[in-house]
Design a binder for these strands. Structure first.
Lengths: 226, 226
DNA sequence: ATATTAAAATTGTGATAACAAAATCACCAT
DNA sequence: ATGGTGATTTTGTTATCACAATTTTAATAT
């Protein structure tokens, strides 16, 4: 039995440290929901799957612990955190505040071409939902939001938002899957965001992003996140 | 020549990892402004000063890099970041947003005893300024703010705020020293915060904390942060 | 069957060593 | 003095190993 499913080996590329390659892999696993809350991530089995020594795995996982995406249990084993209703709520409060801020700043700065791309991404999300291709949905959804946040030109702010997404990641997929089954429309708020951006109305953009974040919270809190 | 001034050695305590002890030391150095922006922090000399091997130092410093408190230069040496006016502004935007949020939530939760303690801390800050004891000022100032934020009962939010303070730390001291020389009164906003808390007025608390954050920014941006 | 306990395996932490890349220094020519 | 050039040192990264603590497993007694 492997720690994670289907990991291809890490190969030594000049310049890029193994640690960073492993970190990127782990980030994708978390963001994509390919990981079970509460699951242990022991260093040695992971290192064996990646075909490296302990050290780069240790570095990558410690980084994710620092970001709150993983946690050190009482006995120091590294685990995917479980979610409490309080933590879920808190994460979305912070998300609302910071993503609203980023969206507001992005409003005058986003190019028309970028806004067109947002429309494409909304379409892609809808298609992915219909096809129940949740990996693609999650990818498009991430692109939609971070296309906006990147335009704000606030690297530290974007880093923190990214950190928050990483913490919500493991629960996002199941929330989307359930919402899709219940035939809700997770794209309604996205269209409001685009409309506000088109109108170049910073406050409206902020408000619609805030609504989107809280719609996402509702989506998640209806399920079992234990 | 040593990397940092006057570091006592780290001794192996059962239970607490060396990494965490070193991390705590480095955090105090950064928060206290006992570190020069742009300064290199090479692993081996630091490990020698702490009397440990590379590994726990490496872990602690990598953690601080993850938090944005230190940076990896192009050639991978770890350094105390320099500050640009943009980054300073961005950090304070985020601080305003999140510390305002935390203060608002703390308003109904802070005990009367805690509010009394805040008044004591304001007094302590004033005395420390008069005595030009900036270490004590920084300590009291930190306690003042985080007594409030801790009461909000939002651990993730507090962690992010703490991370932001760590990033501003190296410039905070010189800002305070200069403001003190110019005989400004950095405590005026603190008294407004206490008044708002006494009145149990969440919006007023938020507003006064936001004002305090931006007063702090003004304090810093007047100087040379390069 | 169930609880207890001891042995075995597994875990993260930390030390040491090897390595390549980068930075530094010394030396020399101009 | 100044600029270049090669040798030396210093750097972070990674591998390997030792260790104590925890977890798991297995055996035993009730």
């Amino acid at each position: 039995m492997t720690v994670t499913s289907s990991l291809t080996k890490i190969t030594r590329q000049t310049a890029e440290p193994l640690r960073d390659q492993i970190l990127q892999r782990c980030r994708l696993m978390l963001m994509g929901g390919h990981v079970v809350p509460g699951q242990k991530l022991p260093l040695r089995p992971l290192a064996e799957e990646f075909n490296t020594s302990l050290m780069p795995v240790r570095d990558a996982l410690n980084r994710l612990v620092a970001d709150g995406a993983l946690e050190l249990s009482s006995s120091r084993t590294i685990r995917v955190p479980k979610m409490s209703e309080e933590r879920l709520f808190e994460l979305h409060e912070i998300r609302r505040s910071l993503e609203g801020l980023a969206a507001e700043y992005a409003t005058p700065l986003l190019s028309n071409a970028a806004i067109d791309r947002l429309v494409q991404l909304i379409d892609e999300m809808a298609k992915a939902l219909k096809a129940e291709d949740y990996d693609r949905y999650i990818q498009s959804h991430y692109s939609f939001h971070f296309t906006i946040y990147a335009a704000a030109g606030r690297p530290t702010l974007m880093g923190i938002i990214d950190m928050l997404w990483l913490q919500v990641g493991p629960w996002f997929r199941q929330g989307i899957e359930r919402a899709n089954a219940m035939s809700g429309n997770p794209n309604a708020t996205h269209e409001k965001v685009v409309a506000a951006l088109r109108a170049r109305d910073p406050v409206a953009t902020r408000t619609s992003i805030e609504q989107d974040v809280f719609a996402g919270l509702e989506c998640l809190r209806k399920g079992s996140w234990q």
